[in-house]
């Protein structure tokens, strides 16, 4: 990723994915698109990052994947947030808020 903003905060990807799935279950491409739209193009998640992240989150039990069969006969896997994932997300959100507040205090202090 060439965009410096996108590589700025390591570990944010998990948070982004979990937050996106909090609203509704989505499949891989849809998750990337939703994040792209929501962040107004700041974060463009590539498959090489997205899928490892999805599988890691699934293994940790935060999200769970369900297979559906499309009318075309192809299968598609959509992910949804588990209950544990939901708890984890709220904890992470709070932690993130603290970081943001702290960072702003540092960056915006007048001295």
């Amino acid at each position: 990723m060439a965009d410096p903003v996108a590589s700025l905060v390591k570990g944010t990807l998990d948070l982004l994915v979990l937050r996106t799935l909090e609203l509704q279950p989505l499949h891989g491409a849809a998750i990337a698109e939703r994040i792209f739209q929501t962040t107004r193009g700041t974060f463009q998640i590539k498959a090489g990052s997205l899928f490892p992240a999805l599988h890691r989150l699934e293994q940790d039990g935060w999200i769970d994947g369900d297979w559906e069969t499309l009318p075309t006969g192809h299968r598609i896997k959509s992910y949804r947030l588990t209950r544990a994932g939901r708890r984890h997300l709220s904890a992470e959100k709070a932690a993130w808020q603290r970081v943001v507040t702290a960072m702003s205090l540092v960056l915006e202090s007048s001295s």
């Binding site: 499949h27 891989g28 491409a29 698109e33 498959a47 899928f51 499309l70 192809h74 598609i76 896997k77």
Partner: peptide
Amino acid sequence: DELRAFVEAR
């Protein structure tokens, strides 16, 4: 399958 779906969606 997952990746195929991704490519198709994109």
